[in-house]
Design a protein around this nucleic acid. Structure first.
Lengths: 216, 216
DNA sequence: GATAGTAGAAAGTGCCGCTATCCATACCTG
DNA sequence: CAGGTATGGATAGCGGCACTTTCTACTATC
């Protein structure tokens, strides 16, 4: 297929596709002449992937390039690809050196029995959030984390199970990466729906919802 | 205190504070002369709040203005303030009219027994994610949602309980709004830590972790 | 052979979150 | 009370980023 069809089937304008080609987010098409190229399903799929990461995930072009690079690297383990995706999503603001927040995060990890690297983007991001919470005066915020951890463990278990459904390693990596990005967005949305649902139930005087969600 | 001290105590440059004043994110100081003003703890707190929303939450200036407006509105219910905050966070890309995705979202809501408005930002956002998942070929993604819902209900319950710890309605609103924004970030980070922890345990041949998290 | 499409490169656009510069005035130190 | 520094207010500028536009020299197609 040619670039116009690629554009038609994805809704991405031709100039934007050219831009992505230039930026290395999309592999070049197979040249049939000095100024003609053919694109295949690979390009179609990749283009949709790029748009998903950019539009839904809010990733920058550079971050998308990193993520795709990790996906394409044949030597890369699933573990490492996940790390790259996380780094891209976390956007590492690399802020303050709040020692208290760092200690809070470490204590939290210990409480959970998690052995996590304090240099990882996820950990840094957590420290940044805790520092901000402290600045804004949300003193009991760190206590919330344990509840988050409980939920997160369940989600992580589910994520991994989902990834194992993939037929090939490439597919698994893509599921993990895209699932990370889409999953975050979906979880945020579902969380808000749940919150609204619960506050509605409270408004109606129902007891905090054991009837539709037996919860253990 | 004067603007320089406000700047010193928050780390925000004076020109940026002036910019926020101009944009209405910060109330004007009390004028003591035509060109002198005094700022108080309110300004200090508000400024930190703005930075938290902008830096951690990634909210645009306009979104921050909306959120703060909701917080300041004395007539606004906690419910409405939450709605405004959600709208600001969700950033409503208002994309495709994917009927299939919409149906998937509706089915999900029914499965959960949630009565949610299909016009709400959270619902729209969910539809957008599902549409994207479909485009990228993540066919079994909708099945993930039920697991998300389980986790989200737990989190929502915790969120509401947290909000009820606030002494005043204003404080509760702030907790809900800021907790929403910080909570999303924190949850994303914790989720990644959990995922890494679990995949480490798998690497070591442990059975998928009942020993540190009895989970029900 | 006219029309439309294409690759590739270079320059331009629009938005957004600041940042810089000015000015007239106020405070503050010596 | 003089002189340097800070302030409020206004206007203009800047840098980054994700595209878009424009151009040229070709090529496929009707």
């Amino acid at each position: 297929m040619r670039i116009a069809e690629l554009s038609r089937r994805t809704g991405v304008p031709v100039p934007t596709i050219k831009f992505y080609l230039r930026e290395g987010l999309l592999p070049a098409g197979e040249l049939t002449s000095p100024n003609q190229a053919r694109y295949g399903d690979v390009h179609l799929h990749r283009l949709r992937l790029v748009r998903a990461l950019v539009e839904v995930g809010g990733l920058s072009i550079a971050a998308v390039r990193d993520v795709l690079g990790a996906l394409d690297d044949p030597d890369k383990s699933l573990h490492k690809a996940m790390g790259t995706a996380e780094a891209a999503v976390m956007a590492a603001d690399a802020t303050s050196d709040d020692e208290v927040a760092r200690a809070q995060a470490r204590e939290f990890a210990e409480r959970q029995g998690w052995r996590c690297h304090p240099e990882s983007d996820a950990f840094q991001s957590l420290v940044a959030v805790l520092a901000t919470a402290r600045e804004v005066g949300l003193d009991s915020f760190p206590g919330q984390l344990d509840g988050y951890a409980h939920a997160a463990l369940g989600l992580a278990r589910q994520d991994l199970a989902y990834a194992l459904t993939a037929p090939t390693k490439d597919a698994a990596m893509e599921i993990v990466v895209v699932g990370s990005v889409l999953g975050d967005k979906a979880l945020a949305a579902v969380r808000r729906l749940a919150r609204r649902e619960l506050s509605q139930r409270l408004d109606r005087g129902e007891r905090s919802g054991q009837e539709t969600d037996p919860d253990c």
